[in-house]
Design a protein around this nucleic acid. Structure first.
Lengths: 185, 185
DNA sequence: GTCTATATAAAGATAGAC
DNA sequence: GTCTATCTTTATATAGAC
């Protein structure tokens, strides 16, 4: 019944009502409270946690299923583009402050940490492994991991009708530019 | 009185209440309706339009104030990092649908177009100019413009306490990688 | 587990005094 | 132009029947 995940992740905490969720699930909104006795904020926390763990899993599998940096990043892009956008800006500036107020700061901090561990750390790890193998040579891999991540996620914002090629093809172009730009002269 | 801009742009339409705006402006929320007789949605439209026009102006000036592609992109980054985040994902997936429902689809479409013209088109133009001068050589400049934009905007999501170097320094690193990656072999 | 009905609180909005 | 007071609608949440 956690199709709440879709709505929360796509539109954010404040922009989704419990009625929206109930409607998506095909039940009356009062019935939802049987499943979420602790209310909307608790549901968001649960759903955000699930979502981040799924992302961690998906990204890890994408990494494990490829050998070269290019293939690994393409696999991560494939995963990210198959999921609802991970809007880190909205998350840190809008969702988490609201959750911190509805519950407490520690809960919000925990989700923020989980997000970082689930998305940026694996990306950074991939770059470090590639650097150890000599595929790239760059002094700021953490920054580059964030940049690649943001660039790929940004593709979600392009409406379908404006797409000239697939988002995956565009992601691959971006990845190629990053890899080439991160190589030693 | 349009300090509503700050709140709307930072947190999004749904996450900001009229009372929040009134409080930020230091007046009672009922007093706000003297200035916004057409309500919250109309205010958002007005504010979003202003915001996009300011961005267009800021980006154009950053471009005009520099000669090389690197300096122009650094100038654009400096502008973007001095402003509240432009969260295109939240905008397209959350804010605009809400505005379309509160007003009409045409109004939402207009803002979306303005956003594209104000941010991505100037960035793309810069890349095309640089290509004409031989600074870069890449077949998908529109995609690259979006990628640079998203990568820079993503820096907003890093909390101050986690910054090891300034956002501008990180933006410059990203720009260098992009330029090098977009150059011909 | 799901519904109807209802309570409570918050948000958007208006009226009218000053 | 700003306030207090009030209205309406919407949202979160609970109670209790089925």
């Amino acid at each position: 019944m956690q199709a709440a995940e879709k709505l929360f992740v796509e539109r954010g905490y404040g922009a989704v009502t419990v009625k929206d969720i109930a409607k998506e699930a095909g039940i009356h909104h009062a019935s939802l409270y049987h499943h979420i006795p602790d209310g909307k904020a608790a549901l968001f926390v649960e759903v955000a946690t699930r979502n981040m763990k799924r992302h961690h899993e998906g990204i890890q599998q994408a990494i494990a299923g490829a050998d070269t940096l290019r293939e690994q990043l393409q696999g991560i892009a494939s995963w990210l583009l198959s999921e609802a956008p991970v809007d880190v800006v909205r998350f840190s500036k809008s969702d988490l402050p609201a959750i911190a107020q509805a519950t407490d700061q520690a809960t919000a901090d925990k989700i923020a940490s989980l997000m970082h561990e689930s998305t940026l750390l694996p990306m950074t790890h991939v770059l470090h492994m590639a650097q150890a193998k000599g595929e790239i040579d760059h002094p700021h891999l953490g920054n580059m991991a964030g940049a690649v991540f943001s660039a790929i996620e940004g593709l979600h914002s392009i409406p379908d009708q404006y797409l000239v090629s697939s988002r995956q093809a565009m992601a691959n172009q971006i990845i190629d530019v990053f890899i080439k730009g991160m190589q030693a002269d």
